[in-house]
Design a protein around this nucleic acid. Sequence first.
DNA 1: CTTCTGACA
DNA 2: TGTCAGGA
Length: 92
Amino acid sequence: MTGESPVDPERGVYGISVAADLVGMGIQNLRLYEARGLLDPDRTEGGTRRYSANDLDRLRRIGTLLDAGLNLAGIAMVLQLEGRIVELEANR
DNA sequence: CTTCTGACA
DNA sequence: TGTCAGGA
């Protein structure tokens, strides 16, 4: 095969500007979500955030949950529980 | 690009 | 409470 990762959802490299534009959110919001514990994007040496395709999908879920009426604290719990479910299903 | 503070719906 | 806007 080609050898090197064709597409790693865990390693999609997007800057915060392009990530915010792709999900239709403000740059400041993405930083707030990270400060709230809604997601944990990778950081480069300079300290710039690196959003993966997985993070983009998570940001879209955040927007859906926000529209559903949940607050950032509730969304953080939902995302945490969803990750837990995936973990349990993988171990199942 | 980062972080912080302020003001508004 | 969440979002937007500014400055350092």
